[in-house]
């Protein structure tokens, strides 16, 4: 069960796994995720299902090594198994033909945006992808995104590749060029999703973001993943992970993501892989 069939390294600290999981491979839809636990002492962590092969019975997971669990998982090899894989969790993306969809991925966020962009493309939408990273080496999935996009814009913070700047600069450019955008889908670090939402709000462009709060069960049982959406509290694992970007309380989400920072450092101390914060 849950055997790692293929392992690839996409960039420094970013691993790409194809994992055997026949039922989930058949059931999953764009926007959904799984929760994995790698061993008996392991934590349960959520990862987006990037792709699946229903016939071959596999799902694809791409993750960045940011702490104990993701680093330990990165050390698994082909032929090893992941102890628990639960899913498919979360509400699937609402996919329909609406016109032009701008799919924005920042850093590791390109991985979860890919399946949604792909589904939106298959539904007949025009896809403009905007993907960004801190530098050229950290950029992932460029070719795959290009394959399913009508147009692709790449940005790097340091200008080492593509356009010098942030993904928001590229979106601003599209708006300035008069492109009619029907929906923006943005996934990445919380600061990025906040910046994108602030920008699109000015122009009244509907915007969906996918939130990555800390989770335990992923079934609505613990409430640990809760966030404020407008004046309501929502559970990301069952009500999301996608929400209206203009209603999310990003400040609260950022604080909640740091809830276990001291413990995470402690738990991670002996681990040799480099710590690279999500933000």
């Amino acid at each position: 069960m849950n055997e790692i069939k293929i392992k690839q390294v996409l960039s420094e600290g970013v691993k790409d796994f194809v994992v055997e999981s026949p039922v989930i491979a058949k059931k999953r839809k764009a926007g959904q995720f799984v929760i994995v636990r790698i061993n008996e002492d392991g934590e349960r962590i959520p990862l987006t299902i990037v792709d699946s092969d229903p016939k071959g019975g596999t799902i694809r997971l791409i993750f960045q090594e940011v702490g104990k669990t993701t680093c330990a998982m990165g050390e698994l090899e082909e032929g090893d198994s992941i102890l628990d894989v639960v899913g498919p969790l979360g509400k699937a993306t609402h996919v329909e033909k609406i016109g032009t969809v701008v799919c924005v991925g920042g850093g590791i966020g390109v991985a979860p945006v890919y399946p949604i962009a792909k589904a939106m493309k298959e539904a007949g939408n025009k896809i403009i992808s905007v993907i960004g990273a801190r530098n050229k080496d950290l950029l992932i999935l460029e070719q795959e995104m290009a394959d399913i996009s009508d147009q692709i814009l790449v940005t790097t913070d340091d200008g080492s590749y593509g356009r010098h700047g942030f993904v928001t600069d590229a979106i601003q450019q599209l708006i300035d060029d008069g492109v009619k955008i029907d929906l923006v889908l943005a996934i990445g670090p919380v600061v990025m999703m906040r910046a994108v939402s602030n920008l699109t709000k000015k122009y009244n462009v509907p915007t969906q973001v996918s939130l990555n709060s800390i989770m335990v069960d992923g079934t609505g049982m613990c409430g640990g993943c809760r966030v404020s959406i407008g004046d309501k509290t929502k559970f990301v694992c069952v009500d999301g992970p996608e929400f209206d970007g203009h209603l999310v309380n990003y400040e609260e989400l950022m604080l909640r993501q740091k809830a276990y920072l001291p413990q995470e450092r402690k738990s991670h101390k002996n681990h040799k892989c480099r710590m690279e914060g999500m933000e």
Partner: peptide, 27 residues
Amino acid sequence: NLNGVYSANEYLTRSNLMRAYDFPNAD
């Protein structure tokens, strides 16, 4: 929604099912 506010379910699940009382031996 402040940090440090738990549902009893979360608190007990972390401690019992996930064995957080044995942190950092349990993750």
